[in-house]
Amino acid sequence: EMEYEEITLERGNSGLGFSIAGGTDNPHIGDDPSIFITKIIPGGAAAQDGRLRVNDSILFVNEVDVREVTHSAAVEALKEAGSIVRLYVMRRKP
Rank of each mutant, 00 (worst) to 15 (best):
1 E>S: 02
1 E>N: 15
1 E>D: 13
1 E>Y: 03
1 E>G: 02
2 M>A: 01
2 M>W: 01
2 M>K: 09
2 M>I: 04
3 E>P: 02
3 E>G: 07
3 E>I: 14
3 E>W: 02
3 E>V: 10
4 Y>N: 07
4 Y>R: 09
4 Y>T: 09
5 E>Y: 12
6 E>W: 11
6 E>N: 07
6 E>R: 04
7 I>T: 04
7 I>H: 02
7 I>E: 00
7 I>L: 13
7 I>S: 01
8 T>Y: 02
8 T>S: 03
8 T>H: 15
8 T>Q: 02
9 L>T: 02
10 E>W: 05
10 E>M: 08
11 R>S: 06
11 R>F: 07
11 R>I: 12
11 R>K: 11
12 G>L: 09
12 G>Y: 14
12 G>M: 13
12 G>T: 06
12 G>H: 08
12 G>A: 09
12 G>R: 04
14 S>K: 06
14 S>G: 15
14 S>L: 08
14 S>M: 13
15 G>H: 04
15 G>I: 05
15 G>M: 06
15 G>P: 04
16 L>C: 07
16 L>A: 07
16 L>I: 08
17 G>C: 03
17 G>V: 00
17 G>Y: 02
17 G>H: 13
17 G>I: 01
17 G>F: 02
18 F>R: 00
18 F>D: 00
18 F>N: 00
18 F>K: 00
18 F>T: 04
19 S>P: 01
19 S>R: 15
19 S>Y: 15
19 S>T: 01
19 S>N: 05
20 I>C: 11
20 I>N: 01
20 I>G: 00
20 I>V: 07
21 A>H: 06
21 A>C: 07
21 A>S: 07
21 A>Q: 12
22 G>T: 03
22 G>S: 05
22 G>P: 04
22 G>L: 05
22 G>D: 10
23 G>F: 10
23 G>S: 03
23 G>L: 08
23 G>Q: 04
24 T>L: 07
24 T>D: 04
24 T>V: 10
25 D>A: 14
25 D>Q: 05
26 N>S: 13
26 N>T: 13
26 N>E: 10
26 N>K: 12
26 N>P: 05
27 P>R: 12
27 P>M: 03
27 P>I: 15
28 H>A: 05
28 H>W: 13
28 H>R: 06
28 H>Q: 04
28 H>S: 08
28 H>E: 06
29 I>N: 13
29 I>A: 12
29 I>P: 08
29 I>M: 08
30 G>L: 12
30 G>I: 11
31 D>I: 07
31 D>A: 06
31 D>M: 05
31 D>N: 07
31 D>E: 11
31 D>W: 04
32 D>R: 08
32 D>Q: 11
32 D>S: 09
32 D>K: 10
32 D>E: 05
32 D>N: 11
33 P>W: 08
33 P>D: 12
33 P>F: 12
33 P>V: 07
34 S>I: 15
34 S>P: 06
34 S>K: 14
34 S>H: 15
35 I>L: 11
35 I>F: 11
35 I>V: 09
36 F>H: 10
36 F>P: 01
36 F>I: 05
37 I>A: 10
37 I>E: 00
37 I>V: 07
37 I>K: 00
38 T>Y: 07
38 T>I: 05
38 T>L: 13
38 T>W: 04
38 T>Q: 07
39 K>I: 05
39 K>Q: 15
39 K>C: 06
39 K>N: 15
40 I>F: 03
40 I>W: 12
40 I>L: 07
41 I>Y: 14
42 P>E: 10
42 P>K: 08
42 P>G: 12
43 G>R: 13
43 G>Q: 06
43 G>H: 08
43 G>C: 13
44 G>K: 07
44 G>L: 07
44 G>V: 06
45 A>I: 02
45 A>R: 04
45 A>F: 10
45 A>W: 11
45 A>E: 04
45 A>Y: 15
45 A>K: 04
46 A>S: 08
46 A>I: 10
46 A>Y: 01
46 A>G: 11
46 A>T: 10
46 A>P: 03
46 A>K: 01
47 A>R: 04
47 A>Q: 11
47 A>E: 08
48 Q>V: 09
48 Q>M: 04
48 Q>E: 06
48 Q>W: 04
49 D>S: 05
49 D>Q: 02
49 D>R: 04
49 D>H: 04
49 D>F: 03
49 D>C: 11
49 D>N: 11
50 G>V: 10
51 R>F: 02
51 R>C: 13
51 R>S: 14
52 L>Q: 01
52 L>D: 00
52 L>K: 00
53 R>L: 02
53 R>K: 11
53 R>D: 12
54 V>P: 06
54 V>G: 13
54 V>I: 08
54 V>E: 06
54 V>W: 06
54 V>N: 05
55 N>E: 06
55 N>K: 11
55 N>L: 12
55 N>S: 05
55 N>P: 11
56 D>H: 02
56 D>C: 02
56 D>S: 09
57 S>H: 05
57 S>T: 08
57 S>I: 10
58 I>H: 00
58 I>L: 08
58 I>M: 07
58 I>F: 02
58 I>V: 08
58 I>A: 02
59 L>D: 14
59 L>C: 15
59 L>K: 15
59 L>G: 13
60 F>Y: 13
60 F>R: 15
60 F>K: 15
60 F>C: 12
61 V>E: 00
61 V>Q: 00
62 N>Y: 02
62 N>K: 05
62 N>S: 14
62 N>R: 03
62 N>P: 00
63 E>M: 06
63 E>V: 09
63 E>Q: 10
63 E>P: 02
63 E>G: 08
64 V>M: 05
64 V>I: 07
65 D>P: 14
65 D>G: 14
66 V>I: 07
66 V>E: 01
67 R>I: 03
67 R>L: 03
67 R>Y: 03
68 E>L: 08
69 V>L: 04
69 V>G: 09
69 V>D: 13
69 V>R: 07
69 V>Q: 10
70 T>I: 14
70 T>P: 12
70 T>Y: 14
71 H>R: 07
71 H>K: 15
71 H>P: 04
71 H>F: 03
71 H>L: 04
72 S>V: 12
72 S>M: 10
73 A>F: 05
73 A>L: 09
73 A>G: 09
73 A>R: 10
73 A>C: 10
74 A>R: 00
74 A>M: 09
74 A>S: 14
76 E>L: 09
76 E>T: 07
76 E>S: 05
76 E>H: 09
76 E>D: 03
77 A>Q: 14
77 A>F: 13
77 A>G: 12
77 A>E: 09
78 L>Q: 03
78 L>P: 00
79 K>T: 01
79 K>R: 01
79 K>A: 01
79 K>W: 01
79 K>H: 02
79 K>L: 01
80 E>A: 12
80 E>V: 14
80 E>N: 02
81 A>G: 06
81 A>N: 12
81 A>M: 07
82 G>P: 04
82 G>K: 03
82 G>R: 12
83 S>K: 04
83 S>Y: 03
83 S>G: 11
84 I>G: 13
85 V>Q: 01
85 V>L: 12
85 V>I: 03
85 V>K: 03
85 V>H: 03
86 R>W: 02
86 R>H: 14
86 R>Y: 05
86 R>D: 06
86 R>S: 11
86 R>M: 15
87 L>D: 01
87 L>K: 00
88 Y>D: 04
88 Y>V: 02
89 V>F: 12
89 V>G: 01
89 V>A: 12
89 V>Y: 09
90 M>F: 04
90 M>E: 14
90 M>N: 15
90 M>A: 07
90 M>I: 07
90 M>C: 12
90 M>G: 14
90 M>K: 09
91 R>T: 03
91 R>S: 12
91 R>D: 02
91 R>H: 15
91 R>K: 06
91 R>Y: 13
91 R>P: 12
91 R>Q: 12
91 R>L: 14
92 R>G: 14
92 R>Q: 04
92 R>A: 09
93 K>I: 01
93 K>S: 13
93 K>N: 05
94 P>F: 15
94 P>K: 01
94 P>R: 02
